[in-house]
Design a protein around this nucleic acid. Structure first.
Lengths: 122, 122
DNA sequence: TCATCTGTACTATATCGCATAGTACACCTA
DNA sequence: TAGGTGTACTATGCGATATAGTACAGATGA
């Protein structure tokens, strides 16, 4: 399920958070679903339990999961909507990248082609 | 000229590299131009000379700049073209962000509007 | 009941990237 | 020759990341 790139510069705990959000957007995780336990996932990924806990703590902080001591960590109510809303920040990022591409001499239509192509994939 | 955001998570030396490339794209720097000296810029930005050197070393590694001991650091031949080519990577980044926005339920036309608007600005 | 799983909270340690501080050397130019 | 230039070191400090180990309390199922 989760896959960690040990060579990546982005911290392991962030990779877990990111993938969790992806799973929410893709429908792999749904409201009420139970995440792998801290210890189980730490064994599965060959990673320290504290690192998993840090990832879950971050997900909790973002309101995407709810921790229940003794039971586990579960996807919160409204988690999918929250992630979707957060991802709208990408519109701003795209705007910034577009400005740079304009400076680099890339034509507007070429950028839009890239968007249309990407949107049609998958 | 250069402006450092001390609160930013991106390292100071990367900020300098980034701004240098921006200056190249915007025409502030041209081939043959002399960059501020390591010591001068370190005083101006209130930053350690070693940090400036690290930034210039990175610019040199990317082939954007040529260091001449005793004289200074100068914009290389073909630097502008190199930066422009590198910035085409943004097309791929935009494609990735587009896919995420699609998952988040954002319509294709909304993304394209964002691109068109950004392209018209400045 | 009890073993076992769960989350949680600590302390300690190691590593790495980043930045600073200081010194030194060789080169170029006015 | 004096002062500015790039360059190369060593040493130090700091914060983020990750590991290691231990411990406690709540929940669950045999």
């Amino acid at each position: 399920m989760f896959q960690i790139d040990a060579l990546s510069r982005t911290p392991v705990y962030e990779q877990i958070v990111e993938q969790c959000e992806q799973f929410l957007l893709k429908g792999v995780f749904t409201v009420g679903d139970k995440l792998p336990s801290v210890r189980q996932l730490s064994v599965e990924l060959a990673i320290n339990p504290n690192t998993i806990q840090k990832a879950y703590l971050e997900l909790d902080r973002r309101g995407l999961v709810t921790s229940v001591p003794g039971r586990g960590v579960f996807i919160s109510e409204g988690a999918i909507m929250k992630v979707s809303e957060d991802r709208r920040e990408n519109l701003g990022k795209i705007a910034e990248l577009t400005k740079e591409l304009k400076l680099a001499g890339v034509k507007e239509e070429e950028i839009i082609d890239s968007v249309r192509t990407a949107y049609k994939e998958d």
